[in-house]
Simulated scan of single mutants.
Amino acid sequence: MARLKNDTLIVVTDSEKALFLRNLTDHENPNFDVKDVDEEENPSDIEQSANRPGRMPDTGHGQRSALDDTDWHELQKERFAKDLAERLYKEAHAGKFERLVIVASPQVLGVLRDEMHKEVADRVVAEVPKTLTNHPVNEIEKLVKAELDAA
């Protein structure tokens, strides 16, 4: 069972926002301090698309098929997770944390795992597959402690 220790870094993220929290106490009475917030605007795909989807000639006479357009909104979500993985690598390399708890939606967690450098992965003590970025910090403390106790 993973336990929160003093100075553990807790990253609470979704695909548009990341909270960087530091535990100032122990597992029994966690006290998270907000160290940084990284937030990115990610408008809907319609707002980001410049054109309507393209069309190409089909096999039949006068027939044309629509092409799927790039989903810019989804692409930006993946980029955000990749950028977060890179930031965590730089901070781990600089010795800014020894223990890491990641709280993220399952989709973001999957991208982070794929992009995470070994130096970061070795410091992960727990993963919580939940989206908690819009919760107040005191609620995040309770929910993370409960998840770790149940694991």
Rank of each mutant, 00 (worst) to 15 (best):
Q107N: 14
L109V: 03
P136M: 09
L67C: 14
Q76D: 12
P129M: 02
R79K: 08
K96W: 03
W72V: 06
R79W: 14
H93L: 13
K142W: 07
A150D: 11
Q76F: 13
K118T: 00
H135M: 10
V103D: 01
P136I: 02
A50D: 10
E91L: 11
L88R: 03
A151R: 15
E139C: 11
Y89F: 14
I102N: 00
E41T: 02
H135W: 07
A92H: 02
P129G: 01
K90H: 08
H27Y: 06
K130G: 02
P43T: 02
D26K: 02
L112T: 00
F32D: 00
R22D: 03
A150L: 10
F20H: 01
F20T: 00
V34F: 15
L19N: 01
K35F: 10
P57C: 03
I102A: 04
V11Q: 01
A104W: 13
A126M: 04
A94S: 09
A2H: 03
S105I: 07
R79C: 06
E28R: 04
S65L: 15
L4M: 01
R87Y: 12
R113H: 11
E98K: 12
Q107P: 05
R64M: 10
D58F: 12
E41V: 04
I46S: 12
Y89N: 05
P57G: 01
Q76G: 09
D38M: 11
H27S: 02
E119T: 03
L100N: 00
I46K: 15
F80V: 00
E39S: 12
K145V: 06
D36S: 12
I102D: 00
M56G: 14
K77H: 11
D36G: 08
N31Y: 04
V11F: 04
Q48M: 12
V37D: 07
K90D: 08
L148C: 07
W72A: 05
L100F: 07
R99L: 05
K82Y: 12
D45N: 13
V103L: 11
K142L: 15
G54N: 10
L100R: 02
Q63K: 14
D149Y: 11
L148Y: 03
D38Q: 13
A146W: 09
R123D: 05
K35M: 14
R113Y: 08
K82Q: 11
V128E: 02
D149L: 15
F32Q: 00
R22C: 10
G54M: 12
N29D: 14
H135I: 05
D26E: 14
E47F: 13
V137C: 14
F80G: 00
E41Y: 06
S44D: 03
R79S: 04
V120I: 10
G62L: 09
T59D: 13
A104M: 06
I10L: 14
L143A: 09
D33N: 11
V103A: 03
N29M: 15
V144A: 04
A121D: 05
L24M: 13
A50I: 10
V12P: 04
M56W: 10
A85V: 02
A126E: 01
V125A: 02
L9E: 03
A66I: 14
N31Q: 12
V101S: 01
N51I: 04
D26N: 08
H27K: 01
E28V: 04
K145T: 01
L112C: 04
E91I: 05
Q63Y: 15
D122P: 11
K118D: 03
